[in-house]
Design a protein around this nucleic acid. Structure first.
Lengths: 208, 208
DNA sequence: TAGATTGTTAATCGATTAACAATC
DNA sequence: TAGATTGTTAATCGATTAACAATC
């Protein structure tokens, strides 16, 4: 009998815990508690303990959690106790900002290939990485065994590029194009659309 | 007796519906159904009908929803049947990309003020907007009655800037700094942290 | 009319929380 | 020992879905 899968909503909180633990470590602390974490993150301590209990027993009654240890455990659970290669497609303003962002590496990700359709851009380099043609993208991604892609192309190109990425073996896509994309079973998509978040908030602040 | 508030999780889906309706409109369609929307968004048609029913009756049995009409209604519900002024703080690579992004306006938002601490940047202009000093930020935001801010400053500065924004009357913050921030009751925060989304997905793709 | 789709109800499903024994 | 905090259970709370009468 297979164990029940851990709810996706729990998986989604683990990176949040990891981020907070990283900050606590940077602050020089060595132990924390579900209450302290809860306070930082604005959720309940019971939820944190319940979430962690899905994966094992990481704390000590009376004293709480060792920060370094718990951090390592969550990194392992999420699979970021290693560095993942990531392809970045679309080198407009946003794509360039992502390519320059230095924060991915310490969280388990390394942008290692850049692709665009614009002949003006192809051949240019960012951080010593050449921008390559999308013609060669699929073969290149497959050859490098890249499993994760960040998509910063215009809306009109998004689905087409997604299909190509999936065909090339990519199984996780972070989509910055403001549209829902369709992928086969087993391929994971996360979406970032700032306007969506802004519109969520305006609901609550309408009466000027 | 006050009516039950609409669940936040429902509010969070409305911008998604709005985005899909905008695309359908752009494609030249005039009517749609809960089933078609559900197919596009990968959720159930029952959920869409239930969500919409929180706010009124927008469809017709047998025929579905008029796209233009439903779009207007959701815009009104979310408060994006107008254009909101938005302040952007932090003009690094990401801040610049956001300042140049042309997609906000058609979704109800206009970046109308830029702030940074770097003396090199202050005085420069992006899209005809001058980058202003953070010294003058609070007074300026209050004078202009800006209620929404996008925060693209380094982690180390985030909470400090948030406190100043809140003090200046900002009630909605889109936080790009990779940290949880603390705000008083009545102030809304949404967070964008791409590494969080990537780590969420690696859980499922671990066995290389 | 026949076919389609809404809006809504009740049932199901799943997530969160409160509480506490265990124990450091 | 006394105080603190975990891991876990059961209860509560909330969200999703299935089903269908109403009706276009």
């Amino acid at each position: 009998m297979r164990p029940n899968p851990v709810p996706d909503i729990v998986i989604g909180r683990l990176p949040l815990y990891l981020r907070a633990l990283g900050q606590m470590k940077a602050e020089g602390n060595t132990v924390t508690s579900s209450h302290e974490l809860a306070g930082r993150l604005g959720i309940s301590s019971a939820q944190i303990r319940k979430d962690l209990s899905q994966f094992g027993e990481f704390g000590k009654q009376g004293t709480g959690y060792n920060i370094a240890f718990l951090r390592e455990q969550i990194q392992r659970i999420l699979g970021v106790d290693r560095t993942w290669d990531v392809a970045l497609i679309g080198l407009g303003d946003l794509g360039r900002a992502l390519a320059h962002y230095g924060g991915f590496l310490r969280r388990g990700f390394q942008i290692c290939a850049l692709y665009d359709t614009d002949p003006e851009k192809i051949g240019q380099s960012i951080r010593d990485m050449p921008i390559q043609s999308m013609e060669t993208m699929a073969a290149d991604i497959r050859r490098k065994n890249i499993k994760i892609a960040m998509l910063a192309v215009p809306l009109s190109a998004a689905q087409e590029v997604v299909d190509e990425l999936v065909g090339a073996g990519v199984v996780a896509i972070l989509n910055y194009a403001p549209t829902s994309i369709t992928v086969p079973e087993g391929v994971h998509v996360q979406q970032i659309d700032p306007a969506l978040h802004l519109q969520h908030m305006t609901y609550y602040i309408k009466p000027d």
